[in-house]
Amino acid sequence: MTSPDYKAFFARFRSLLALGLMVLALSLLSDRFLTPDNGWNILRQISVNLCLSIGMTLVILGGGIDLSVGAILGLAGAVAAGLLKHGLGIPGTTLWIEFTVFGAILAAVFVGGAAGWCNGFAVTRFKLPPFVATLGMLSIARGLTMLWTGGFPITGLGDDFGHIGTGAFLGMPLPVWIMLALTAVFVVVTKRTRFGRHLYAVGGNERAARLTGLNVGRIKLAIYTLAGALAGVAGLIVTARLDSAQPNAGLGYELDSIAAVVIGGTSLSGGRGSVAGTVLGCLIIGVLNNGLFLLNVSPFWQQVIKGGVILLAVALDKMNSKGRET
């Protein structure tokens, strides 16, 4: 391990154990749980949350929080769908740009990244608390989505685009490929690059990081931009899977994403945690949702249970770190 964080290791180990127990229990309780189809189902369902949560992990490791990822997801999906379907007119001219699927994908990631960059700019340049800066962006992105769509879904995006959400390659769904690739990239980025190391340092002690000569502002700007771009990717998956951009897509997703990061053992005070832990956090939430659905638990109770799991995970983490520090 490059930076052996024993607390994170135990947290991860504990999450793994919890996941194993859940899988075991659900296999016994439902004969529909442990099937290949259901397995793919769960992975496809968590792919969106994982995209958001990887970005959220970066932001939280850096000592911040991002409440706007769900709204950015909605905006990026709507922009991609709108451009693909209608193209873009240049104001004041008669020029009209048509977008290919590839162009629409780039646009979604760009819009997401730009919104994230604005978050980072507000946090670094104007020293706004991340909670406030991203709360503002949440509202702005939602409003822009409504303006762009007029409040109506944009549907009929074509098979090529839909492929992103429903297609498969070598027998594995494309969203799962995307999710695995992003996980691999960001595990390496956080654990094996200078940027990753500096990110842990900024989250662990911003003052010391600054006095050691690290460019704290640039690192923060980067993590919010990445979180926004990843929300753009998530927006593409959601829109493609439904073959439709819903103006309300991604509503409340930031909360699931924060939950996954926290359940995965990343500390909300920054500097402690890992992308690998977040993958486990997403799996736990995904398996829980899926299992409760298969067991015909009412959606209302599902919410209550999910909340309880979050509280339990954080309480265990607190007890764990308290026992070590004294």
Partner: peptide
């Protein structure tokens, strides 16, 4: 503690 070391990181890091 406040300005010098990053407490959650290793000695090496």
């Amino acid at each position: 503690k406040r300005d010098g070391v990053v407490l959650p990181m290793s000695v090496l890091a």
